[in-house]
Design a protein around this nucleic acid. Structure first.
Length: 236
DNA sequence: CCAGACGTTGTT
DNA sequence: GTCTGG
DNA sequence: CCAGACGTTGTT
DNA sequence: GTCTGG
């Protein structure tokens, strides 16, 4: 779950949301896939910074970048114990702003229909912030540049998501951003912050199956179909 | 001791 | 790097 | 997450 | 069917 996201919110608005002075230059993208860059906000020596990172966490011991291809999500319930995630869980948490994310609903009857893609977004059409872990990876033999990578944490679905899926990304509301990024946050606080989001904050609409093939920076792929559950989404 | 895994989702 | 399984 | 490949030898 | 690449 949570294997595609969108981010077209202008940098100025994200600067305001995170109270930053600097922000990386990024064009709007409507179909961000694993291995693409996502924006991560991390706290580095008490300095908050927004940095593009490769989506798919590559543990420091990995011999190959491709290991990150299946590390796009981390279960919040078990990340503290998993060898690939536990150091990041303790020391390298980050925030990942999105406009929304895609979820592919399985066909009700097996073998019948095609999967239905939905775009899930905030009910109030504002960008929102996912909980992530990040890692720094150095290619073996010192050949090539250090690569920053990240993973999106998941938790069980809230009432908004459960009709189409049993998991959802962890969402961190603005009042908890600082706690999530702080190095002194306790285990019990982390458990609290990774609970499913409050019911009612998300809504969704059907998108064309063309989302699969759309280029990832085209707004076409988030155009709602006629049969839609919310009609008031605006581009940011 | 060394060798091999190290992950999630969803589906069966 | 660190843990698990053989 | 989906889309697309899924193989080797030898020759150019 | 299952893995890899994006």
């Amino acid at each position: 779950m949570c294997g595609r996201i969108t981010l077209s919110t202008p940098a100025a608005r994200l600067i305001e949301l995170f109270q930053l002075t600097d922000f990386p230059r990024m064009d709007p993208h409507y179909n961000i896939a694993p291995t693409h860059l996502v924006i991560c906000i991390r706290s580095q020596e008490n300095e908050k910074q927004a940095i593009p990172m490769r989506w798919g966490l590559v543990p420091s011991w990995a011999k190959d970048l491709s290991i990150g291809n299946r590390m796009i999500n981390a279960r919040s319930e078990t990340a503290a114990e998993k060898p690939s995630f536990r150091k990041a869980w303790t020391h390298r948490r980050c925030l990942i702003p999105v406009d929304g994310f895609y979820e592919w609903e399985k066909p009700a009857k097996p073998g019948s229909k095609q999967k239905q893609p939905w775009l899930i977004h905030a009910a109030d059409n504002t960008p929102f912030v996912l909980a992530g872990l990040w890692e720094s990876w150095q290619p073996p033999e010192s050949t090539g540049e250090t690569v920053l990578t990240c993973s999106i944490l998941t938790t069980s679905a809230n009432a908004d998501m459960s009709p189409i899926h049993d998991r959802m990304p962890v969402i961190i509301p603005p009042e908890h951003h600082a706690t999530w990024l702080s190095a002194s946050t306790t285990t019990s606080q982390l458990t609290e912050l990774t609970q499913p989001a409050a019911d009612g904050i998300l809504t969704r609409y059907r998108v064309s199956t063309a989302v699969n093939k759309a280029t990832f920076d085209s707004p076409e792929c988030i155009a709602p179909l006629a049969d839609t559950e919310s009609t008031d989404l605006q581009l940011f």
